[in-house]
Design a binder for these strands. Structure first.
Length: 274
DNA sequence: CGGGCGGCCTGGAGGC
DNA sequence: TGCCTCCAGGCCGCCC
């Protein structure tokens, strides 16, 4: 489901709902997510604790209970958080329920179970195996043309695969990789090492602009994404190439093509992207 | 060691 | 209506 803009939209949506609430009780209904959910550790670190901050690293959400613990969560492809009351009918694939003060509940729903939930100590964040090798945040100043140029140097790997690699830069998934390459006028199959510095600068700008724009409109709703208030995102109507195979390019009217890269669909305009 | 790709899961869409 | 195949926004880990 979600790439960085969707996760950021969820984070912003959860802040007013969760900050200041206490996690009174945690029920794991099905621990079979991407990794088995360590239920007792979750309860030991988080139950009885007050939520003080909600942060994001790449596509990971970090729901923090001060010095006591952090709920590290990943939505995978189909995960979502639902904020509701005890009377709300339970959706199928509700794997975890966090009972909150004020008679509210935070539920984790994930049909495909590619998501994850784990409780960690605050001091574990820096060296956690899932976080330690992550590249820079794409919207941070650290991610710039100089950095991406050095990563691209002499690499034969297609540029699309490279920008989707979380060790290079986090948060750029299949949709926004296709979109950013389109705006930068770069063919997704082009070897990273054969791009000029100027074009890499353009690509960095495109990534920042596409992600920033998507965040500002609440993410992309393609199939099943919505924020915790069940509001849909509106970026889908702005997609230039993604899921537009056979349709005309908005710039040059040539037909958008689809290819397979790394077992994933790639969409591009064969005329605008070289 | 870089990097391609299989596999993890379920459900929806579309073809017949 | 039903069955079958294909496809899906992520990411670890295996293997070349």
């Amino acid at each position: 489901m979600p790439e960085l803009p969707e996760v950021e939209t969820v984070r912003r949506g959860l802040i007013p709902l969760l900050l200041g609430r206490t996690i009174e009780r945690i029920v794991i209904r099905d621990s079979r997510l991407r990794y088995p959910v360590a239920k007792r550790r979750l309860q030991a670190l988080l139950s009885g604790r007050k939520i003080t901050a909600i942060k994001r690293r790449g596509k990971y959400l970090l729901i923090s209970c001060g010095s006591h613990g952090i709920l590290l969560a990943h939505l995978g492809m189909t995960g979502r958080f639902q904020f509701c009351t005890p009377r709300t009918a339970q959706a199928s694939h509700t794997h975890a329920i966090f009972y909150l003060s004020g008679r509210k509940e935070l539920r984790f729903v994930d049909p495909r179970r590619f998501g994850m939930l784990e409780a960690i100590h605050p001091e574990e964040v820096a060296k956690h195996s899932l976080l330690v090798d992550l590249g820079p945040e794409p919207l941070s100043p650290q991610f710039d043309g100089t950095l991406l140029s050095s990563v691209c140097h002499n690499r034969k790997r297609p540029i699309k695969n490279l920008i989707m690699d979380a060790k290079v830069v986090v948060g750029v998934g299949n949709i926004y990789a296709s979109e950013a390459l389109h705006w930068a006028g770069i063919h997704p199959h082009r070897a990273a090492g054969r791009l000029s510095h100027a074009r890499i600068e353009t690509l960095v700008d495109a990534i920042k602009n596409v992600l920033g724009r998507a965040i500002s409109v609440g993410g992309t709703t393609l199939r099943d994404f919505s924020d915790p208030n069940e509001e849909a995102g509106y970026f889908a109507i702005e997609l230039a190439v993604y899921d537009r195979e056979g349709q005309p390019c908005h710039t040059c009217a040539r037909v958008i093509k689809r290819s397979i890269q790394g077992n994933r669909s790639t969409f591009y305009c064969p005329a605008c992207q070289r």
